[in-house]
Simulated assay, not measured.
Amino acid sequence: MISQRAYINQKNQAAREPFETINAHIDRWRSATKKVLNALQLTQVTFDNEGIRR
């Protein structure tokens, strides 16, 4: 899985906060996506490009 993150290298908390918020959103979306993919696998639903296009 791609591990793209907002770059956090600021010295003070106020400057880091927006980037930490972005990373938290990325983590929530990644977790939700994993749950959906796991549910599809458990129900043996085929998940491919054709299914996504529909």
Rank of each mutant, 00 (worst) to 15 (best):
Q10V: 02
S31H: 14
T43E: 09
P18R: 03
Y7I: 06
R53M: 09
D27F: 06
L37G: 00
N23I: 01
W29N: 10
W29E: 11
N23T: 04
R54G: 10
N9K: 04
Q4D: 12
N49W: 00
A32G: 15
N49Y: 06
F19Q: 09
Q13V: 13
N9S: 10
T46P: 01
Y7E: 10
R28W: 08
R30N: 15
Q13R: 08
K35G: 10
L40A: 12
R30C: 14
T46E: 09
A14P: 05
F47P: 02
L42D: 14
I26M: 12
Q4V: 05
K35A: 13
I2G: 10
I26G: 08
I2D: 12
Q41P: 00
I22A: 14
T46R: 06
V45A: 14
G51P: 07
L42H: 12
D27E: 14
I52E: 00
R54F: 03
L42N: 15
D48M: 12
R54V: 02
P18V: 04
D27R: 05
M1W: 03
A6Y: 02
N9A: 09
A32L: 15
F19A: 04
I26A: 12
I8Q: 01
N9H: 08
T21F: 04
N9F: 05
E50P: 01
R16E: 06
P18Y: 07
K11M: 05
Q44R: 10
A6W: 03
L40H: 01
A6V: 03
R16H: 02
T46H: 02
Q13K: 11
N49E: 05
T21M: 10
V36L: 01
S3L: 09
A6F: 05
A15E: 15
K34F: 11
I22S: 00
T21P: 00
K34N: 09
A24W: 09
Q10S: 05
A14N: 15
Q13H: 08
Q4I: 04
Q44P: 00
Q4E: 05
N9T: 05
G51W: 07
I26N: 10
R54H: 02
G51A: 10
A24I: 03
G51T: 09
Q4H: 02
Q10R: 10
E50R: 11
R53S: 14
L37P: 01
E17N: 13
T43D: 04
I22Y: 07
D48V: 07
Q44D: 06
I26C: 04
H25K: 14
